[in-house]
Amino acid sequence: MSKHHVTTTVNGDAVEFLADPRETLLDCLRDHVGLTGTKEGCGTGDCGACSVELDGTLVCSCLVLGVEANGKTVNTIEGMASGDALHPLQRKFIEHAALQCGFCTPGILVAAKALLDKNPDPTEEEVRYWLAGNLCRCTGYDKIIRAVMDAAAELREAA
């Protein structure tokens, strides 16, 4: 099995790795790039725990091959805060207790950020449908939805 040399930009950093063509972007981020914040919950695109942005599009990194990331830009949970300053979504998730075990949290934050970048003033229903592909088994979603709505409000005020 020959490996492929992949050059990408991950969270603003130039990154190179060797990927077996069968490895997913999720495998590569976790095992080759050392970014384990992106989680695998299902490997079939049904849970959203592996959400990342690929060239600005929200995707499940388990449904992208590592080799497909060549020449592209990847943003993960590790790139969400700016230095010490958490993204408002991250802050609101802590404040609202929008996580219990925290395993689905990185994927939900990445997905929610993609929503707010596109739609700064979503309705509760829009948030719920946008996040329908992010399974959370702990919270019943209530506090997650509240945190996203609150972060959106704060971002609108700041804008």
Binding site: R30, L35, T36, G37, T38, K39, E40, T76, I77, E78, M80, A81, L86, Q90, R91, F93, I94, E95, A97, L99, G102, F103, T105, P106, L109
Partner: peptide
């Protein structure tokens, strides 16, 4: 009261280490 959880920062930044990490 409802203070922020002590492990909150790790869990919203992807730093928290779970089983496969």
């Amino acid at each position: 009261t409802r203070p922020n959880r002590p492990d909150g920062l790790d869990k919203v930044t992807g730093r928290a280490r779970y089983g496969a990490d």
